[in-house]
């Protein structure tokens, strides 16, 4: 059930940026961020009290040729979670960084997505890999990276009787 506070915030955002958000349940607002001026939109949200960037999730949609980024924002004063989504082209995966808005928190979230999805964040000055060492291949969390095939090709031993079965 949406509360009065949820609807007020949603109306404010919708009238300011002409977005079409919805309240799915108490304290949960979902919306698509405006295509133009994404960083200004984020800055405005932070000024409204959404100080905590809980996470950024990237979703790969190869069939639609796009990446979707979901920014999960929490307001300590209003106790509302906004999930704001933005879509970017899969071939030219670049988006403006929000590090100047959510600082250290945004910095590492973007760094992780850059490593695992290969999305570039314009304005983030440290996108060095976190988890993988000397990784040259496709960013591994993309849908077109088949880890089963990768493991089969790299980690089974053709000479080993028991592991030879994996080569068919």
């Amino acid at each position: 059930m949406a509360t009065q506070a949820d609807l007020e915030i949603l109306d404010k955002i919708n009238s300011e940026f002409k977005t079409k958000g919805e309240v799915r349940r108490k304290g949960r607002i979902w919306l698509d961020a405006p295509a133009e001026g994404f960083v200004d939109f984020c800055r405005w949200l932070k000024e409204q009290g959404f100080e905590h960037l809980s996470a950024i999730s990237a979703i790969d949609w190869p069939d639609e040729n796009m990446f979707e980024l979901a920014y999960h924002l929490w307001s300590y004063q209003d106790k509302i979670l906004i999930t704001s989504k933005v879509k970017i082209d899969r071939q030219n995966a670049v988006i403006d960084s929000v590090t100047e808005i959510w600082n250290g928190s945004a910095q590492v979230h973007e760094r992780e997505i850059h490593e695992l999805f290969g999305i570039k964040f314009e304005g983030n000055n440290n996108l060095t890999p976190l988890f993988l060492e000397d990784w040259q291949g496709l960013p591994p969390f993309r849908k077109d990276f088949d880890w089963r095939e990768y493991v089969r090709a790299n980690y089974y031993d053709r000479q080993n009787e028991r592991e030879r079965v994996y080569y068919g």
């Binding site: 990237a58 979901a70 250290g104 928190s105 590492v108 992780e112």
Partner: peptide
């Protein structure tokens, strides 16, 4: 997507 608290506590 899994968001663990230590992700931010242990890096920044």
């Amino acid at each position: 997507k899994i968001r663990g608290p230590s992700f931010l506590h242990m890096i920044p």
